[in-house]
């Protein structure tokens, strides 16, 4: 039996809310699984679906986008643009064989270090039983 591989989650967090929540989790010494790798962007509105597809294609077991709560975007409404793309992208990603659990958009404010822990922990726990996944490209090679 192959060795159980820890899932690797690519997180794309906005600078002003979720990235700060992750910093707050740190200063509060809140513990969560070491499965996520955070890429910082200024706003969740910057998240290009190409980044998500690229992450899955490059082997990410999950992609987590984190932005400010509705109404709280540092840039007023970038998070809504992110939400619009997410609604369509999650359907496409699902059609392409990615389980729902692997792709999430979460609103986590700068004060919600604890919520960050909850989300990451939950995501890791839900992805782990799904096992590793592959791209069609890898199957062929």
């Amino acid at each position: 039996m192959p060795e159980a591989v820890e899932p690797k989650i690519l997180a794309i967090f906005c600078n002003w809310c979720t990235y700060l929540a992750a910093d707050l989790a740190g200063t509060s010494r809140i513990k969560y699984p070491a499965n996520i790798r955070v890429v910082r962007v200024m706003c969740s509105g910057r998240v290009d679906p190409q980044f998500v597809m690229d992450a899955f294609a490059k082997g990410a077991d999950g992609v987590l986008i984190g932005g400010c709560h509705p109404g709280d975007c540092h840039y007023q409404e970038g998070n809504y643009k992110c939400l619009r793309r997410f609604e369509l992208l999650r359907r496409m990603v699902k059609e392409m064989g990615i389980e729902d659990e692997r792709f999430r958009l979460e609103w986590i404010s700068a004060s919600e270090g604890d919520r960050l822990r909850t989300v990451v922990t939950d995501m890791v726990e839900k992805i782990r039983p799904l096992g590793p996944r592959q791209t069609l490209t890898e199957v062929t090679q």
Partner: peptide, 14 residues
């Protein structure tokens, strides 16, 4: 630090 050493307990994973 904030997003690694302070939030994880598992040294090899961190």
């Amino acid at each position: 630090r904030e997003q690694d050493s302070w939030v994880h307990l598992d040294k090899p994973a961190a």
